[in-house]
Amino acid sequence: MEYIVVIRTLGTAGDKYQQLLDSLNKQTIQPSKILVYIAEGYSIPKETIGKEQYIYVKKGMVAQRALPYDEVDTEYILFLDDDLSFPENTVERMMELLQQEHADVISPDIFPNSSRSLPAEIMMRVSGRMCARRNDDYWGYKVMRNSGYSYNASPIKEIYQSQTNAGACFLCSKENFLKIHFEEELWLDKIEYALGDDQVMYYKMYLMGLKILTWYKHGFVHLDGGENMHPEKKKKVIYADFHFKTIFWHRFIYLPETSKVKRLWSIFCIGYTFLFSLIVSLLKARWDIAGIKYKAIFDGIKFVKSSVYHTLSIVSKIQ
Rank of each mutant, 00 (worst) to 15 (best):
V237C: 09
K142D: 07
T74N: 12
E257S: 08
R263M: 14
E101V: 11
K284F: 07
V72E: 11
E158N: 15
T214E: 09
T28E: 06
I44K: 12
E40M: 11
F79W: 15
M130I: 15
E47V: 03
R116V: 07
G148C: 04
N152S: 08
S114K: 03
L78D: 09
Y272R: 12
Q30G: 00
N113V: 07
E183K: 10
I279W: 04
G271I: 06
S313D: 12
L178Q: 03
A39N: 01
R129C: 12
V315Y: 13
V72C: 13
K157M: 06
A194Q: 12
E257V: 09
E121V: 04
I55P: 00
W139V: 04
T90G: 02
I159T: 14
S281E: 01
W215S: 06
Y54F: 15
I318L: 11
G209D: 08
V105T: 02
W187Y: 10
A290E: 00
V280M: 04
L35V: 09
G14N: 13
W215P: 03
K302A: 13
F252Q: 10
L80D: 07
Y42E: 01
M124K: 12
E75P: 07
R133N: 15
M123S: 10
G209S: 14
D109Q: 03
S127G: 14
E185G: 05
D241W: 13
I156R: 14
F79I: 12
V91N: 00
Y239S: 10
Y203C: 07
A39K: 01
P87M: 11
L255F: 00
A63V: 01
A166P: 00
F220C: 09
L35R: 03
I301H: 11
F276C: 02
M95A: 08
L118W: 12
L255D: 07
N228A: 01
L118D: 14
Q319G: 12
K305Y: 01
C131V: 07
L255N: 05
L21I: 05
L80K: 12
K284Y: 06
E185D: 15
V261R: 08
L20A: 03
